[in-house]
Design a protein around this nucleic acid. Structure first.
Lengths: 124, 124
DNA sequence: TTCAATGGTTACCTAAAGGTAACTGGTTAC
DNA sequence: GTAACCAGTTACCTTTAGGTAACCATTGAA
């Protein structure tokens, strides 16, 4: 019976993996937040995040579109402009991010005995 | 003012990064769950997770000890045995994992239009 | 005409994560 | 003595994520 329980746990981890794939990596959350903040255009998003390269941004935006976190619209007009807008689905991530943030703050206290009670409120 | 808000967001992501470092990677959650389930010894944990190598397990257990998720005890006796036990701190992760799992389940529905209402309850 | 801006793509390289397998030192069972 | 168990370590290799920089086609401004 123990083995069965274990296998159930493993399959229960699949959705967890999915979520980690969506928000994991060095840039995904930065890009998502930038778009939530109102940055709409490719170069605008790129400039809003220091050290982010066009190549990585391009790839991550495609991923995020596939995951229905953003919608890509090509505006007719010249020069060609694209617009990236966040979906409602993307906003359901805020709760998850908040949970990750809270645990991280607590964890830091646990590890470093950080007694400084700074204002750590999120402002996404 | 917008720039300032953005920087605040970035620093708010630091604890998020911390959490993702703790639970990210291919094996960390599997190992943690295995220990939560009651597996205590090195080979026992190793055998409980298919395809996990001793090298990776060894490294991850060290990380997890540093992050105070587990306690490593060397039992005096021969052959030398070690015991890994989960901390209370590690258990505060369950809520986070549940949140990740719920979002992942919902996300899958969104992406694949999965209408099958399976029992997806977690049993950690 | 040359420069900068638009939204990207391409080729090449580095660093980190993870996989493979042999090996250590010690003990017990056959 | 030899095989198998314990808890790991070490050296080497592959795969993936990400970084660097040049480049494409298009337009409008100087």
């Amino acid at each position: 019976m123990k083995k069965k329980e274990h296998k159930e746990c493993m399959s229960a981890l699949l959705p967890v993996r999915d979520t980690l794939d969506v928000i994991g990596g060095k840039w995904k959350l930065l890009i998502l937040i930038s778009i939530w903040e109102g940055n709409k255009h490719f170069r605008e998003i790129e400039r809003s995040i220091p050290k982010l390269s066009t190549k990585v941004l391009s790839k991550e935006l495609k991923d995020m579109e596939e995951n229905q976190l953003i919608i890509r619209t090509v505006l007719n007009g010249f020069p060609v402009r694209t617009k990236y807008t966040p979906t409602e689905h993307s906003k359901t991530l805020k709760k998850v991010i908040l949970e990750l943030q809270n645990w991280g703050i607590n964890h830091r206290k646990k590890i470093f005995g950080d007694k400084s009670e700074k204002d750590n409120s999120i402002s996404i």
